[in-house]
Design a protein around this nucleic acid. Structure first.
Lengths: 208, 208
DNA sequence: GTATAAAATGACCGTTAGTCATATTTATGG
DNA sequence: CCATAAATATGACTAACGGTCATTTTATAC
């Protein structure tokens, strides 16, 4: 009785196809303002059909954001390196992040937008912050840093994670798609990133 | 011939009335999703009339954001105090900011949303970032700090302003209206603010 | 009082997310 | 192979909303 399973596979496949097309569509000319009719057209499906696979437009963008998060998580997990101190890894971590935002600005902006969204974990039904996997990595690095003494330990891990993550998003949010504004004011964007690291790095090291 | 002037006064008055009503409306139950029809109703004006005073809905929210910015600027300008070091003033500055967000969360969220908006300065037609007056204050404090030696001088003022502002907004964005999420993860919000300051403060002081 | 200008109005329009009665395709079982 | 049922797909339709404009109302001028 493999029919059920085939159906399920086909259903997942179609979902992926829709998501694929949505990725191209929403990262294209019209951006996030592309309509569901547009998506229906470029998937060659009826509009109603789309709603059999996703409850609404928002959920499609969320699903894309999740894809982006997973991409980012994979890259970040390669940063974990026991031969390095916590502080060093934080620096690497930041580099990965910035590179990711440069290479995948579309996913970047989705992450910025949906980062705070709470999803239900499949199976367990447990509520999870969308970016949880990424924060996990950051947490591990910080933990190592506090253990090896390279990172200040007067602030809890969870709080430090929230702080670093928020600051980083804040900076990236300023940088993303605002080169012109910063230029008007004669601000060197490259130096914002560098400066951010410098401040954070000096701010994170444990006090003598 | 005071009729022209009276008309102008009346026009400005009506604009202010609309803005007043909009402030109450958009900070109320429906939030920013309240409609222009709602606004027409609660101003007791026809919908078309609203468009004689504002070109579109967005511009009303922008005008409210500007009101918020001015409110914040007034508070921040009281922080300027030559008897304190730059670093000390940065700390005060942050306190004002956080208090403002707690007391005026509606204006706070508007600032978070429209902070990047560029407006034309009246008369001069010069393009200005909406938050420019606030950034000016921050810049002055940092300048003083670099002069008195309390703040690191290996990063330019403009860049430091952009960094601190972005980080601060990032943190406030995380905190604003997300107490529940942070609670799920057992994060102490009070400590996020404190921690943010600690990190920034240690990160800003000039190296020995 | 009448003509003219300014201000106000709300019915109307275009757009878009989402729905649902209907049609089409696929599976079942005799 | 056919009849029936179940699953899947469809696009015309609805509701909601931002924004427009021909028309009406009000104020000013002479």
């Amino acid at each position: 009785m493999g029919i059920k399973e085939r159906k399920i596979r086909e259903k997942e496949l179609r979902r992926k196809e829709i998501l694929e097309a949505a990725g191209k569509l929403f990262s294209g000319k019209k951006g996030m303002d592309a309509t569901m009719d547009d998506l229906a057209e470029c998937t060659e499906l009826g509009k109603g059909t789309l709603y059999l696979y996703f409850p609404n437009k928002e959920s499609i963008l969320e699903a894309l954001a999740e894809k982006g998060i997973n991409l980012l998580r994979k890259r970040l997990s390669r940063v974990l390196d026991d031969s390095k101190t916590g502080v060093e890894q934080i620096s690497d971590n930041g580099d990965v992040f910035v590179t990711f935002m440069q290479e995948k600005p579309f996913y970047g902006s989705l992450i910025l937008k949906y980062e705070k969204t709470i999803l239900k974990a499949p199976e367990t039904e447990e509520k999870l912050l969308m970016v949880e996997p990424v924060l996990d990595i950051l947490g591990k690095i910080l933990e190592k840093g506090q253990t090896d003494g390279s990172i200040r330990n007067d602030i809890g891990i969870k709080e430090l994670v929230a702080i670093l993550w928020s600051q980083m998003l804040g900076v990236l949010n300023t940088l993303s798609g605002r080169k012109e504004i910063l230029e008007i004011y004669g601000v060197d964007t490259e130096w914002i990133i560098r400066g951010h690291y410098r401040v954070i790095m000096s701010g994170l090291v444990s006090e003598k």
